Amino acid sequence: MSSSSAPLPATDEADVALLREVPKLYARLQGELSKRIVGQEEVLRHLFLGLLAQGHCLMIGVPGLAKTLIVKTLSEAIDLSFNRIQFTPDLMPSDVTGSEIIEENDHGKREFRFIAGPVFTQLLLADEINRAPAKTQSALLEAMQERRVTVAGRTRDLPAPFFVLATQNPIEQEGTYPLPEAQLDRFLFCLHVGYPTAADEVRILQSTTGAPPAALEKVCTAETLLGLQRAVRRVHVPASVAEYAVRLVHATRPNNALAPASVKRCVQWGAGPRASQALALGAKAAAALDGRLNCAAEDVAAAANIVLRHRLILNYRAEADNLTADVIIADLLKAVKA
């Protein structure tokens, strides 16, 4: 993988210094998270990449795999405010964004007062997001895209940084409301949370049935994270790497000449331009995490699964052939060379 230590023309010294600290910062973060989280190293790395890239993440995994614990622990270690919303079929949009109530002021006059909803936080866990109806799911759309909400005709900004981490249960689909493609596209990454290994499960058993978990030290503040996010945006993407990312996304579209046979047969709709942007942002964050100021084609390829798997709309042939999005992405990576 290529690397460079030369400062970028458009990057000032402060941003370069911040980027140089990213690997050390993540090593410290890993040390703190390991006090409560056993295993799941890949998920933790991808979540941190999402934070650096200012993107939201969708986590898919069966119950009991510590998805909620991971998010809460992350918020403590990075000193972010944290709220959790348990999505249910009777959840209303106002339960997410907040609402206005009428109350009497000190002078005995009635006036409206805004009660902020749980979305007004820096790290929001949307637990089992597909259990709420579309009207409530859409309450998050503006927040995720614009980082603000509109209630009673007034727009209010959300705290910065703002990061939504939503979970989905791949089983128990009865009574759920699948996320529309427009909302899925708002998630930068889609992460699969798998079962722990036998050794990790023994460690989980021992650590959770004994003494209370250890207190965490703050690795960085919200202000430091905002600086890191700004610096990561300025990591250089060479023209050849940008072209590779775009060719990968074009190859997900069945009618494109670059599409491999599995895409033409099993994909109904491919990824849009937002996927190219997500590949570039994921590559920038990965380069920063490796201590580099330029990203390489390998960074783009490494981000392909988490960026594309929720953006490919598969047809009935994929289900009949038992093909997943990850299998098709593997074909893409073989067919489209850097």
Rank of each mutant, 00 (worst) to 15 (best):
A285P: 15
I85H: 06
E223P: 02
D299A: 09
N322S: 15
H46K: 07
S81V: 01
T155V: 12
S94Y: 12
T97A: 12
Q145T: 12
I115R: 13
F87W: 09
L308M: 08
E128F: 00
L323C: 08
K109H: 09
P180M: 05
A251Q: 06
I85T: 02
H236D: 10
K135N: 10
D79I: 05
I70F: 05
A330S: 12
R247F: 05
L51F: 04
P23F: 00
V246L: 13
T97V: 13
N169E: 02
A280G: 05
G153C: 12
V202F: 05
L333F: 10
R147Y: 12
L228I: 01
F162S: 10
G108S: 12
Q137R: 08
F120S: 04
L140I: 12
H236Y: 08
V71G: 00
A283N: 04
L258F: 03
I204W: 04
V300W: 12
T155L: 04
G291H: 15
L19K: 00
A320M: 15
R233H: 08
E174D: 12
Q183L: 11
G117D: 09
M59Y: 03
K109Q: 14
P133Q: 12
P254K: 05
L29F: 07
E319F: 15
L205D: 03
L333R: 11
R45M: 04
R317F: 14
A182E: 09
L216E: 07
H236R: 08
A160Q: 14
K35I: 01
K35E: 01
T150C: 07
V16K: 13
G61P: 00
R253M: 07
Q206V: 08
G64W: 02
